[in-house]
Simulated scan of single mutants.
Amino acid sequence: MNPISSLVFVLLLTVFPTQIFCQNLIAQACGYTSYKPLCLSTLQSDSEAKSAKDLLTIAKVALKHAGTKAQAVNAEVKKQQGSATDEGLKQALSDCAENYGDAIDQIQSSTSALGSKKYNDVNTWVSAAMNDADSCNQGFEDQSVKSPITSSSTTFSQLCSNVLAITNHL
């Protein structure tokens, strides 16, 4: 490296050390996941993640986004319930609302466990939330109706998977 390049590099490190470190921390965390593009877009858009100093904070932010998505899916399910006319769809949506209600509770339990650094409990609760999402999806198949929430439900499961991958490296 020539002297001018070295000087520019050192200046960048002194001017932007936090930003460089945090972006590297996000990239490191997302490198553990199966859904890296989703992980990167989620964490890079979050100010708390962008200023994180450790992987635990990154895990907390990832879990927060999974919880937010669970609440959004649950709201979407309840909205769909109000307009459903097909009996099979009504039943599947009713079951799904219950499943996502449980998933929200489990994500909240995961958040408490993460705060207490009980990582095995986090994994248990997040896995249970993912199972609830799977049960919701299965309910539509059992009723032989098309799920109106497939995309949202898939994103929720992927966010949960990312949480598990990051938590496993704490």
Rank of each mutant, 00 (worst) to 15 (best):
K90E: 07
T33G: 02
E87W: 15
K79G: 06
T57Y: 14
Y100A: 00
A66C: 05
K53V: 01
V73L: 07
E98P: 00
Q91A: 14
A75G: 04
C96R: 03
T68W: 02
A59V: 07
A113Y: 11
P37H: 14
G82F: 08
S34A: 15
E87T: 07
Q108T: 11
L40A: 13
C39Q: 02
K90N: 07
L63R: 06
A97F: 03
A75M: 04
D46F: 00
E76A: 14
S94W: 08
S110R: 07
E76T: 08
A97L: 04
D105N: 11
P37D: 09
D102C: 14
A59E: 06
A72Y: 10
L43P: 10
T111Y: 12
K53A: 04
L93S: 05
A103L: 09
A70F: 12
V77E: 06
S45H: 04
N74T: 11
A62V: 05
H65A: 09
G101D: 12
Y100V: 01
K36W: 09
S94M: 03
G115M: 12
G31C: 08
A70S: 01
K50C: 11
A66S: 13
E48F: 10
A70P: 00
L63E: 04
Q80A: 13
Q91E: 10
A103S: 10
S34I: 06
K90T: 06
L93A: 05
A103Q: 07
D105R: 13
T111A: 12
V73C: 08
C96P: 03
P37K: 14
S51C: 00
N74Y: 08
S34R: 11
N74K: 11
H65D: 15
L38V: 03
I58K: 04
L55M: 12
A92M: 07
K50M: 13
Q71T: 13
V61K: 03
L56A: 05
E98Y: 10
L114T: 05
D102H: 13
N99L: 06
C96V: 07
I104T: 13
G82T: 08
K60G: 11
P37S: 09
I58Q: 03
T42F: 09
K90Q: 10
G82V: 10
S51K: 10
K90M: 06
S41R: 10
K50H: 06
A97I: 10
L40D: 03
L55W: 05
D46G: 02
D105Q: 13
K50E: 15
V61Q: 07
A113Q: 01
